[in-house]
């Protein structure tokens, strides 16, 4: 039973919670507002909050000047590509570890997790040199490979925690009825596993979209996703706040929306199931 709360107390807490929420959200709100200003309004003193001439020209200009959609498309290909490839490799592994656990399953899982803790600078130089020699620098293929590998442990772990919750009795019943291994996977497990797979997919796309160590170090102009594209605004010339804001808004909007749908899975995915 929820504890009874006086209306007065609820009002006070509501005002406080909204104030704190808006404060934390403010940098994002300010970026979105600035993206609709002219460059002159963007640096007006005192700052203009809502009373300015709304314009869309920054969005047009960002696209025109720096070919925004190419970088957007690079981000899509890299994040979705690495996630799908990762799922393809991880689903069989997680399935096997959840339903046919052996003596060493736990050790294998822990070892996979430990690879995630390897700091990227520890392997930066070899990867850079291997990529240079293999012609993979500044290619989307190269980034898909790297991001698949760095996120593989998270994908396997997330799927494993979801698959473990599927009751084993159902499998036994199917086996009694004479279902083969593949029939078991196709007709019994898949329908039950789809929600877990979908959550994993969503979280992993978000993580790959925002990954900023490998994308910054392994791309130049051609394959640069949005993380690297935005970084190119760090040494700008002239007035640029409004354009920076427009580029930023477009870079974070899709993932912000996806992120809000995956709040619950976020906790589970990022704590490797330690907090549910």
């Amino acid at each position: 039973m929820a504890r009874s709360v006086t209306p007065r107390r609820k009002m006070v807490v509501t005002v406080l919670a909204w104030a704190v929420g808006l404060l934390i959200f403010f940098p994002i709100l300010w970026t979105i507002l600035t993206s609709f200003k002219t460059e002159a309004d963007a640096i007006a003193s005192p700052p203009l909050f809502l009373g300015f001439d709304w314009t869309l020209e920054n969005y047009a200009e960002v696209q025109e000047r720096s070919d925004y959609f190419r970088h957007f498309w690079n981000s899509v290909v890299i994040s979705v590509g690495s996630t799908l490839l990762g799922l393809l490799i991880a689903i069989p592994s997680a399935w096997a570890m959840a339903f046919v656990p052996g003596r060493r399953t736990k050790d294998v899982l822990m070892w996979m997790l430990s690879t995630k803790m390897l700091p990227p600078v520890g392997v930066l130089i070899p990867i850079y040199l291997i990529f240079r020699d293999a012609g993979l620098l500044d290619t989307r293929t190269g980034l898909v490979i790297v991001l698949t590998l760095i996120n593989l442990p998270i994908i396997i772990w997330m799927l494993f925690t979801y698959f473990k919750e599927i009751p084993g009795e159902i499998l036994e019943a199917a086996r009694m009825d004479g279902a083969t291994l593949w029939a078991e996977i196709l007709h019994v497990l898949t329908p039950m596993a789809v929600p877990g797979i979908a959550s994993t997919l969503l979280l992993n796309i978000i993580l790959s979209w925002n990954e900023a160590f490998w994308t910054l170090n392994l791309t130049a102009a051609k394959a640069a996703p949005l993380t690297a594209f935005i970084a190119s605004y760090s040494s700008p010339e002239g007035l640029f706040y409004a354009k920076l804001s427009a580029a930023s808004t477009m870079a974070i909007a899709p993932i912000l929306i996806m992120g809000w749908f995956s709040q619950k899975q976020l906790v589970r995915g990022l704590t490797f199931g330690a907090v549910k």
Partner: peptide, 20 residues
């Protein structure tokens, strides 16, 4: 509102804070 900053890519949040 509170969760939103987590989904902002690092380069965007750094540049927004730095400049604006």
């Amino acid at each position: 509102l509170v969760i939103a900053p987590f989904f902002v890519m690092p380069t965007v949040s750094a540049l927004v804070w730095k400049n604006m």
